[in-house]
């Protein structure tokens, strides 16, 4: 059997997904035995032109991480889609927008004004902004177009599988690589490298009765390392978040932040959490309920931390 051809790319990403792939450690050598890496900008020096020269479908599997922030990300996503048999949205950003997706709370013009004019280390009295085309003596310089919205990978190309996580864990990556190498591919559209239970289902903390009189933020209290975090009044996303990470954040004694997104069948993680959270508010009167709810100071930012572009509303209106 000929070796698998693997590719990986980062669009609007931080590089953490690349590090996660490196975190399979010594198994990277095993990967090299069964697969040729034909494109992976952070580690292997193939260029866009090499990819353009590949035949359509030449790449067996492309692990695409990052959201789509600009025209270059979209262009390369389309190129890699054309050259790849299987396209995987790898990591929370590609799946649902991730942390870069928080930019959808702001308008593009406001982002530019803040970054290039207002921020207090910036010296820009002439109000220079980056331009997609700029003439210099040697020719014209081009920049990719910065889009109005951050998008998910599936907004611009057909995606075969979704692998959530910020970043996905090394164990899950290795498990998925083995499945790919075996050829026993799951049905199209499946979420891989995770489970369809919730974080709460897998969490070993002691749960008693979920009733909350007061919500706290983590810095305000000494957090009990045995007890359910939600019951301590912390807005833990565990009830509405897909399991598979091995309960990493809760094991560091902090609430789940929701990076694996919702389980199958749930369209909007934040809406689901509104429902879950409201049901545990322990109030006798609407006024008391109002007061308790007002202690959740940034609900939209907390509930859509990793998934605003992939949510129903997609951005702030």
């Amino acid at each position: 059997m000929s070796k698998l051809k693997l590719a990986s790319y980062w669009a609007a990403a931080c590089g953490g997904c690349d590090v996660a792939i490196l975190d399979i450690n010594e198994k990277i050598v095993d990967v090299a035995n069964v697969a040729d890496i034909v494109f992976w900008p952070i580690a292997v020096d193939f260029k866009y032109s090499d990819v353009e020269a590949y035949a359509d479908g030449y790449i067996d599997v492309c692990l695409f991480h990052g959201a789509i922030r600009n025209s270059e990300g979209e262009h390369i996503a389309k190129l890699l889609r054309q050259k790849s048999k299987v396209m995987v949205a790898f990591g929370s950003c590609a799946v649902a927008g991730g942390i870069p997706g928080l930019a959808n709370f702001k308008r593009r013009e406001d982002i530019f004004e803040r970054v290039y004019i207002e921020s207090n280390s910036t010296q820009n009295p002439e109000r220079v902004f980056p331009q997609t085309k700029f003439a210099v003596p040697e020719g014209e310089l081009e920049l990719p177009e910065f889009y109005k919205d951050v998008k998910c990978l599936a907004d611009v190309v057909d995606v075969d599988y979704f692998m959530p996580g910020c970043p996905p864990t090394a164990d899950q990556i290795w498990a998925v690589v083995q499945v790919i190498a075996s050829g026993a591919l799951p049905p199209k559209g499946a979420f891989v490298g995770c489970s369809n239970k919730t974080m709460c289902d897998e969490c070993k903390r002691v749960k008693t009765e979920k009733k909350v009189k007061k919500f706290y933020r983590p810095y305000e209290i000494m957090i009990d390392s045995e007890k359910c975090l939600l019951e301590q009044g912390l807005t833990c996303m565990g009830p509405v978040t897909r399991a598979g990470c091995g309960n990493q954040c809760t094991s560091a004694n902090l609430p789940c932040r929701g990076c694996y997104g919702p389980v199958d069948g749930v369209i909007d993680q934040g809406a689901k959490y509104i429902s879950a959270l409201a049901s545990i508010v322990d109030a006798d009167t609407p006024e008391e309920a109002d007061r308790i709810i007002s202690q959740i100071v940034d609900p939209a930012g907390t509930f859509y931390r990793y998934g605003l572009p992939g949510s129903l509303l997609r951005r702030a209106k």
Binding site: G16, V19, A20, D23, C166, P167, T169, C245, Q248, C249, T250, S251, A252, L254, P255, R257
Partner: peptide, 8 residues
């Protein structure tokens, strides 16, 4: 809890 983007 995790090496990349730890909540700590």
């Amino acid at each position: 809890g995790k090496a990349t983007h730890p909540a700590w």
